[in-house]
């Protein structure tokens, strides 16, 4: 017997059927809607291109020294000039993109994951777990973060992985706090209760229903954090921790070039500095666009 036939009910006034829009359409819409977002993504594309294709495109070997060409000002042959060992600053600045992006993206991804898990657990279950986690995170935040990162790298050893770990650790509290707050306000929301009634366990309700709703504000945090992470990695290199010469890295290049500014060879430090600024600026601009893309409510 088929009990599931249609019950004739009174039709409500209906909106005209909307075209169902895919995720890609939505991304295109967000880009079109806000020229700043479009600009940010264009800048991001430039950065990505430099990171992926950079080493293949640059005119000179970033590590090749040439004593006869040392400290040349910018010219047609050397767009950004050459450094004290005659290496091409342009090639070095472009090649450095890959390493700097790698460090920051890896660090941010790591802190995103750890912070999300800790924050979501604290926000959902509360109680002593929340108290304990929150105090630990507060303790981390109580340190001057850059000094903490210096300490971690100095203690664990001077490697690129340790820069990533140090940068991740100092960023975890920001994610954890944000996620904790976002999860906490949705813990008792109707849709979370409904998900429990639908037979979902607590972990699943948290992971599949509550956490995704915290993504839009997280995206803003991620993009700002990418900028910070790059600055942080460059800062550590600047003071001689982490990446070591002769590796091409913006922080080291600025550090090495700084000595030459007084004697008039400004191009050594300025150009890698500008690259750094470009990257940080790009990530800061990216935030709002990313948020709009992951928020289904922005779709019509």
């Amino acid at each position: 017997m088929n009990t599931m036939t249609e019950i004739p009910t009174v039709a409500e006034p209906q909106a005209p059927p909307a075209k169902s829009k895919g995720a890609l359409d939505h991304v295109i819409y967000v880009l079109k809607d806000n020229p700043v977002t479009l600009l940010a993504f264009a800048m991001f594309a430039v950065l990505m291109a430099a990171a992926v294709l950079g080493p293949a495109l640059v005119p000179y070997d970033p590590l090749a020294t040439n004593a006869s060409e040392a400290l040349q000002p910018p010219s047609a042959a050397h767009w950004f000039g050459t450094d004290n060992l005659g290496r091409d600053v342009f090639s070095r600045a472009i090649v450095a993109t890959r390493l700097d992006l790698l460090i920051s993206v890896a660090a941010v991804a790591l802190s995103f994951v750890i912070g999300s898990v800790l924050g979501a657990a604290a926000g959902y279950w509360g109680g002593w777990l929340d108290v304990a986690l929150s105090r630990v995170l507060d303790t981390i935040m109580a340190f001057p973060l850059f000094v903490l990162a210096m300490g971690i790298v100095a203690a664990m050893g001077n490697t690129i992985e340790n820069i990533v770990y140090a940068t991740a650790i100092i960023n975890v509290p920001f994610y954890a706090r944000l996620v904790r707050a976002e999860v906490n306000i949705r813990r008792e929301a109707g849709f979370a209760l409904a998900a429990k009634l639908a037979g979902n366990t607590d972990v699943r309700v948290l992971a599949m229903h509550i956490f995704p709703n915290a993504l839009p504000p997280m995206m803003v945090q991620v993009s700002l954090n990418l900028g910070w992470a790059i600055l942080n990695a460059a800062g550590l290199s600047f003071i001689g921790l982490g990446v070591r010469p002769p590796t091409a890295e913006w922080g080291i290049m600025v550090a090495e070039g700084a000595n030459f500014i007084v004697s008039g060879e400004w191009w050594l430090a300025i150009f890698p500095g500008l690259c750094l600024m470009f990257a940080v600026f790009t990530f800061n601009l990216l935030g709002d666009g990313l948020r709009d893309m992951v928020d289904p409510r922005r779709r019509t």
Binding site: G190, F191, L193, A195, L197, N213
Partner: peptide, 23 residues
């Protein structure tokens, strides 16, 4: 949530907007 009785007792919530996952 994992109890076999879960499916037997269900609920319709007061605020339809709040009870649907916005995502």
């Amino acid at each position: 949530a994992r109890d076999p009785m879960r499916a037997k007792i269900q609920m319709v919530f007061q605020d339809a907007t709040d009870s649907l996952n916005p995502r």
